[in-house]
Design a protein around this nucleic acid. Structure first.
Lengths: 228, 228, 228, 228
DNA sequence: AATGAATGAGGATTCATTCAT
DNA sequence: AATGAATGAATCCTCATTCAT
């Protein structure tokens, strides 16, 4: 009896500490599936194994829960990627590949729902959109630009508009994440993100390769870096 | 007097005929901004210059209105693109560029909200997701694959997995449309889709170019076409 | 051509004159089927072969239409019955039978819906209830009482409470009318009102007959048990 | 303190258990007064001492509430009456009287509103009409027929069409219930159902009595004309 | 006289939020 | 800390009524 009580009590406390993140996980899944407005708090609670009322012990209201879900998320990954780029001595094309494949790993995690969530709700949560734009998107683009600019300076890459190329560089990956949370359920076969990214990286490297480095071709460049 | 009566009468009748598409336009805008659940029919009505009740003269309920909004839209553009490809005798790279730039023109129209809408609501409207998957997405991918396969057969392009390349090919464009309806409002400068697409096409062409045609490089190919 | 126009015009005018009663007929049917609140004016209009707006040329609003439907109805029949009783020299039992059978004929007409209507809507239209109570029900009961009292005075009937017997006397008939408009549609075989009334009258006469007048008797039976 | 807590807690839980029937009671009253369509759920809630939303914790929607109201009701009474008939060894005329008087007791209860309700809404709820027809009306008629047939076989009653007589037998009682919920409010003096039924039973017995069994007789009269 | 497009008040229903237990 | 009964604001939807034609 005492043993059971003890273990029960222990589990209880572990439980209590885990609650917030359990709730966030359930909320992420629900919001990802149906969007903010269409998600019922009762469903979130059910998925988290608790009842509606309990949610309010941890989050002030639906909106705060949503913001918490979104905020938790991708910022650490950005930071990690920034660190990687800062420390790496690899050739830029390798760095580019590492960057993309590292992010591709997120696709298998629940966090892959976040981009859909942000995209979807940006209109209803302007401050959240701003936050995400500043803390994730712009930092992500800047990071890609850094690598690209480095590659161009070193003569590895052709001089193209780095912002635009940056957007092209993560577009397929981002699309794959959106796909997973919108259409994957409706298709028989899953989209293999790794394969997609490998192909994309192949294309991208090839497409970026400067004449100098590839010792071939006098490709016309589309456009120079605007300011520098 | 007669003139006024006539024009007034004409306007009256034209009104009745124009109503459905006026409503669809307003609905597309509202749904695009806030999503299905968060959109109030009263707002749609107001934007269409009518009142709540009038909506129900033209659409049975909110869901039917939503479906009509989604259905109207992109299919004709797919058909147009298919026709273009079927008739064109251009080099595949030119065709690819035309395809992308033609779609890029949609970005300036209200229809550019549709992809976001579908993405957002696929979870809540499974039949709609299926419809869109079958009638737009799969057809779009198949169309790109057709062009790619043709290019490969003619030796213009390297032999890569056409489905994956297809997804990479429209990813930046699609992302631009999503961007416009999610983040554009929060950024000072607009994203110029045409420029983005031109850069992307440049990269893509370069990335696809086969050794044979470019008379250069012995690039390793990532992956062969599965069946042929 | 002229002929057609003329006849058309003639029909038109006949039409115009008939409109109000056509509408009342349609309204009686609709109200009878679904009740006041559940009846949509659009249905009434459709059944009358006109459109919603036209109703308002003849009746100020839904309530007035309803009242017109109810008012038109049974009062003349009461008056007719009163006249019959006043003039008749028949034995009271015969008069009673005539009274009941005369009313039974109404069952085949659309007017048979009125009792259901009144019963149903008395709660929502107190003034209508009063009107009907005064102009139809109380007059009807009084008429039966008159006949019964006459019969008692003449020694034909036993001395019973005439008001209560009056209520018993038309109960089966009234119930048949209610039945027709509530359950008849759900049963295979129709209820034959005439037969019901004949049996009822038989019972009633027998039940009322005073010992004095019947001198005990070997009453003829109306009808045998069908199967056994 | 503990006492208060306990009772308060008890009341709380008893509340939860009692709610459904409290609601059904309020709903029966409202529906009986105004009909299904004209009854606002807010009124039902108010009469039950709760608010609109609470209704939906116990009933899925207005229609389900209505059906629950109707279903709860009369079936047990039918069953009780069937049991009584099955066990009774009384003369058929006594049994008939018991049957009628037993049902007459319902008139004083809220259940007396049900017949009006069914009559009113049979057109709008066909399945409910069928249910009621099968489970109440037909069983009720069959029960009367059973008693009548028994009486005929024993030579107590004249051989008449038992179905028709059955309908005549409960008509006054049924009418009294309808009356109570439609006109009673508009009349100064209430209709005394017991007296009505006694008179009716008197008439009925007398009317049914076969020549053989009555041996002519000097029947006692039930009641004299009040004023005259 | 007739139409039918348009209106908007009224009521059913949902669900975030509260609070007594 | 957790529950779940209760609430009521918010929103969809219907339909009586109006009015330009």
């Amino acid at each position: 009896m005492a043993g059971r009580d003890q273990s029960s009590s222990a589990r209880w406390h572990r439980r209590k500490a885990a609650r917030p993140s359990e709730i966030l996980g359930a909320a992420l899944a629900c919001f990802g599936e149906r969007g903010f407005a269409a998600t019922r708090l009762e469903d979130v609670a059910a998925r988290a194994g608790i009842t509606k009322g309990t949610l309010y012990l941890y989050f002030r209201n639906k909106e705060e829960l949503f913001k918490a879900v979104v905020r938790q998320s991708l910022v650490p990954n950005i930071a990690r990627a920034e660190a990687m780029v800062a420390q790496s001595a690899e050739p830029s094309s390798v760095l580019l590949e590492q960057l993309i494949l590292q992010w591709a790993e997120l696709d298998a995690t629940p966090l892959s729902a976040i981009p859909k969530l942000i995209l979807t709700e940006a209109g209803n949560f302007p401050d959240l959109a701003r936050f995400y734009l500043d803390e994730v998107i712009h930092r992500g683009i800047a990071l890609f630009q850094l690598v690209l600019r480095r590659g161009i300076e070193r003569g590895e890459f052709r001089p193209l508009d780095t912002e635009l190329v940056a957007r092209c560089a993560f577009a397929p990956l981002l699309l794959a994440m959106l796909w997973r949370h919108s259409f994957a359920a409706h298709e028989g076969h899953a989209l293999d993100v790794t394969t997609l990214c490998l192909t994309h990286v192949e294309l991208l490297k090839h497409g970026l390769t400067s004449a100098r480095s590839s010792a071939c071709s006098k490709e016309s460049e589309v456009r120079d870096e605007p300011a520098g």
